[in-house]
């Protein structure tokens, strides 16, 4: 009975010690997190318009108000370790809400440096440093220049990485589109008759049918070509990016590819064919037999006359 009373007293003393702030370090974390969360911006705080799209201007304003009411200034998470190429970042590390964006929500590169120069929307000198949350995908190394804005509108700058065989069978959907193809240069460099400084080359694909496409390119690009494909010669392999025309209006309806960028993939090569008398022996034998038969035939015809 006496021992039970002593054990109970010890338990009460222990509980009291834990309840005192600062007595045990890890006991303070929950309060600190709670304090941090109390001051952070949550989804409910982010203003949106009627369609649910983030209103960036209103959002930044709300963020500034929250910063003014932020608590626990002495609680700071250590700044993330600087990543290579991230020299322009502040030691504390910017977070999404601090990154300036344009009307479409796309991150403005370099604008964050101007922000510190007098942007009225945020006051980095007055507001406490925000703890940088680690990115769930990329961890501690987040580059604000590479942030994706899911609200960005699509544009028409899509490049079709395709094959020459697809261009040979292309329908109107590929007309006037930017495409990128790789192929072997064959034939000759033909001077473009009405465009000084431009040339025509032919690019051949590696498909079964060896599809081809004529490419219209500037003279500078043709300097990359060291070999033109022909019998016994493998031409230079180029990667060409440019605009595909099913019926080119500049070239009287020709199907062609106007090159914007040309990259050397592989240099050409020449295959030497050594002379080997052995390969001629079967033919020589057959021709000899043929001549013998001719002579015999003429002898027989002369004999009959």
């Amino acid at each position: 009975m006496r021992r039970q009373w002593i054990a109970a007293a010890l338990a009460v003393a222990l509980a009291g010690a834990l309840a005192v702030p600062g007595f045990v370090a890890w006991a303070d974390t929950k309060d600190a997190e709670a304090a941090t969360l109390r001051g952070s911006v949550t989804n409910e705080d982010v203003p949106t318009d009627d369609t649910g799209v983030v209103d960036t201007a209103a959002r930044d304003e709300a963020t500034a108000k929250k910063d003014a009411n932020a608590v626990a200034p002495d609680v700071q998470k250590p700044a993330p370790a600087p990543q290579p190429g991230d020299e322009s970042e502040s030691p504390e590390g910017p977070i999404n809400e601090d990154v300036p964006t344009d009307e479409a929500g796309v991150v403005k590169g370099g604008a964050e440096d101007a922000e510190g120069g007098g942007d009225g929307e945020s006051a980095p000198a007055s507001k406490p440093a925000r703890p940088a949350l680690p990115d769930p995908v990329f961890g501690e190394g987040v580059n604000e220049d590479n942030l994706v804005n899911p609200q960005q509108k699509p544009d028409s700058s899509f490049i079709y990485d395709t094959a020459i065989s697809a261009l040979q069978e292309a329908d109107s959907y590929l007309n006037n589109q930017t495409v990128q193809v790789t192929g072997e240069v064959v034939g000759d460099r033909i001077v473009a008759e009405f465009d000084p400084g431009f040339y025509w080359i032919v690019l051949q694909g590696s498909d079964k049918a060896h599809s081809e496409i004529p490419v219209f390119m500037a003279g500078d690009f043709t300097e990359l070509i060291d070999t033109y494909g022909a019998y016994g010669r493998k031409g230079t392999t180029l990667q060409v990016r440019g605009t595909f025309h099913l019926t080119c209006s500049e070239h009287e309806g020709l199907t062609d590819l106007h090159a914007d960028a040309v990259t050397l993939v592989e240099k050409g090569s020449i295959t030497e064919q050594p002379f080997d008398i052995g390969t001629f022996m079967p033919g020589l034998l057959l021709v000899a037999v043929g001549f013998v038969m001719l002579i015999v035939f003429h002898q027989m015809r002369e004999g009959q006359r």
């Binding site: 390969t279 001629f280 057959l286 043929g290 001549f291 038969m293």
Partner: peptide, 28 residues
């Protein structure tokens, strides 16, 4: 172009042998 040369020599030989054989069907 040595490979095509050998190939056409064989083709010439085959045509000569076949042509002469057919001509033997009727001398005159």
């Amino acid at each position: 172009e040595w490979e095509p040369a050998a190939r056409y020599l064989v083709a010439i030989g085959i045509a000569m042998v076949a042509g002469c054989s057919l001509r033997f069907l009727r001398i005159e």
